[in-house]
Simulated assay, not measured.
Amino acid sequence: MTKVKYVRVSTVEQNTSRQEINSNEFSKVYVEKASGAVKFLERDEAKKLIQDIDKGNIAEIHITTLDRLGRDIIDILTMIEYFNSKSVNLFVENIGMFSMINEKPNPTFKMIASVLGNVAEMERNNMLERQKAGIELAKLKGKYKGRLYGTRMTDEEFLKKYKNVQAELRNGESLRRAARLGGVSLGIAQKVKRLMMSEA
């Protein structure tokens, strides 16, 4: 039975080093790059974590903050209940508290988790409202050139937008150099390469 850590950032461009600062204390660190809006059970690294839990390999999970599990209160509490049912103790570093004490659910933790989960959900809703309001304001001023809220570029549109990065990669440049020459982030270059490979 092992002690592991689950780390999550919202985008591939974000740095995980702050969350991984104590990674040497754990037998394994699951590094997730997915939005908090994505349900925990639908994330790639979370699925691997669940598989390891189901195999009985994990006794303790550490996360830096509760919102690493999600931004939806129901999703957060569902995962806490699941961990408890599997006798896996969850430790949230910023509040210094375990989900279980003496192998029984910690009622104080559950109460605090409910409050923090609601805060995380409200923060996400407020962020979305601010984003929508900002777009509407930009439209009124005639300055909005982006896509409509809630829409996404297709893979084909994405590759077309970053065709200069494609060209650098086809010329044999490294990801970092292709990103620099194309004037984009490393995360964008990685996605371009991934889509190019899927088309090959």
Results as ranks from 00 to 15, higher is better:
V165G: 02
R147C: 06
K161F: 06
N84D: 15
F158Y: 12
E121L: 03
G96N: 14
E93S: 13
M97I: 11
L128F: 11
G96R: 13
R176S: 11
N126A: 15
L175W: 04
G187Q: 03
N171M: 10
L140T: 09
Y162M: 00
N164P: 03
D155L: 00
S99R: 01
V184Y: 02
L175R: 08
R176I: 05
L175I: 15
E156L: 05
R124W: 09
M100Y: 06
S99G: 13
K86T: 08
R124A: 07
S114C: 12
K161C: 06
E136N: 12
R124S: 06
L159T: 01
G172W: 04
G182V: 00
M127Y: 14
A138H: 09
K104C: 07
N94R: 08
K86M: 11
K132Y: 11
K160W: 00
A189G: 01
I135N: 05
I188G: 01
A167P: 05
G142M: 05
K141G: 09
E121K: 01
F109R: 01
E156Q: 10
G146S: 03
N164Y: 06
N106K: 09
F83P: 00
Y144R: 08
R177P: 02
G150M: 05
N106C: 10
V92Q: 05
Y82A: 05
S185P: 03
I188D: 02
R180L: 11
S174N: 07
F83L: 14
K145Y: 10
V115R: 01
M122W: 13
N84Q: 15
L116G: 00
E121H: 05
G134C: 07
L137E: 13
N164R: 09
K163T: 06
D155A: 12
L181P: 02
M122I: 13
M97F: 10
K104F: 09
A167L: 12
K104V: 12
V88S: 03
D155F: 04
F98K: 14
M127A: 15
N89H: 08
K145I: 12
A167D: 14
E103P: 05
F158Q: 01
I95Y: 07
R170A: 12
S87P: 03
A113C: 10
K139N: 06
L128M: 14
K160I: 05
A189T: 01
E93D: 15
T108E: 14
Y144L: 02
Q190I: 09
L90D: 00
E129T: 11
E129D: 15
G182T: 00
M111S: 15
T154H: 02
M122S: 13
F98R: 12
L140A: 13
L181T: 04
N118M: 15
K110N: 15
A113T: 04
I135W: 06
Y149L: 11
K145P: 08
L175D: 04
L186Q: 07
R177G: 03
I95A: 08
A189Q: 02
Y149Q: 11
R180W: 01
K132I: 13
M97H: 08
S87N: 15
L140F: 10
G183Y: 00
T108P: 03
R170Y: 10
F91W: 14
